[in-house]
Design a binder for these strands. Structure first.
Lengths: 156, 156
DNA sequence: ATTCATGCAAATCGTTTGCAACCCA
DNA sequence: TGGGTTGCAAACGATTTGCATGAAT
């Protein structure tokens, strides 16, 4: 499936008259190889630099913009002051939300499709045509809940 | 109802040994007086400066952090590169989502409570305790949809 | 009087941009 | 060859911070 993404990328580059460079391939590969990790730009930069030490941070920024424009990735924001990116899945399975632990910062994903009907409602009632959504739940992961109850014991 | 918020604020300040200053009152008032406008820090600064020209931008930033810590406001992010803030409503009615138009940037609000059951499911299945959520729908507002179909005609 | 809060300016951090060198098509 | 692409460094914009002054308790 990763090869499909790469092919798609190369094709879209050609269509727009853009060039298929090593750096662009490397950035896309880094994201594909780390699915589910929600890498920040700097993290992607570090990964790519391991194999291509000469790449510049600006190139990574520019490539991410390009990949976003081509709908291959999208930005996710976890309020930590930096942009993170996620590979776009094929339409059928793109419905997942993020659980952000406000204590340890861990991110978990949940699959769900309750949102579809909600989006229909929104179109009917508000005339607003939904093309994308961002859903995040903040709270405590099970790990932190455990730790917290332990701490209560230790305090005595 | 605004007075309730202000009382609440003053009480929380005292509880924590913080001080009730003119600047803090002014920032909170600006937010209360502009509910639904999703003001950015700079916009709040400009509003407050109209009556208190000597206030510093840093004070506004610090006060917003304080108000957030006290759970009186929360941050909303519309991907425009700046933080915006919204007053926290009482628990019963805090469920509304944002419709962000990707063309004109307008923000509409939708009331909804479909999320409650979803949050229960999440707790049961994932052991994650949801305390807050952020839900945004991106797409085209009715206005822009209209304009777009007009443009199609004009192109001929 | 003490200690917290303020305003200002400088510092910081993520991101963008100008430009000369570079390299894919 | 020529125009998109790169790396570097400088520029940028939002936010934070250090510090001396000022004000609330």
């Amino acid at each position: 499936m990763e090869k499909k993404i790469v092919k798609n990328f190369e094709e879209k580059l050609r269509n727009k008259g853009y060039r298929n460079t090593e750096q662009r391939q490397a950035v896309l590969s880094a994201i594909i190889d780390n699915q589910g990790r929600h890498l920040s730009t700097e993290e992607i930069y570090d990964i790519v630099k391991a194999n291509s030490p000469d790449i510049g941070l600006a190139t990574v920024y520019r490539t991410l913009l390009l990949l976003e424009e081509m709908n291959l990735i999208h930005k996710v924001d976890f309020n930590d002051g930096r942009s993170r990116y996620e590979l776009n899945k094929s339409n059928e399975e793109h419905l997942h939300h993020h659980l952000v632990c406000t204590q340890c910062g861990s991110i978990h994903e949940v699959k769900d499709d309750l949102l579809e009907q909600l989006e229909k409602q929104i179109h009917e009632k508000n005339g607003f045509l939904v093309t994308n959504h961002s859903v995040k739940f903040y709270g405590l992961c099970s790990e932190c809940q455990k730790n917290n109850s332990q701490k209560t014991y230790q305090k005595t």
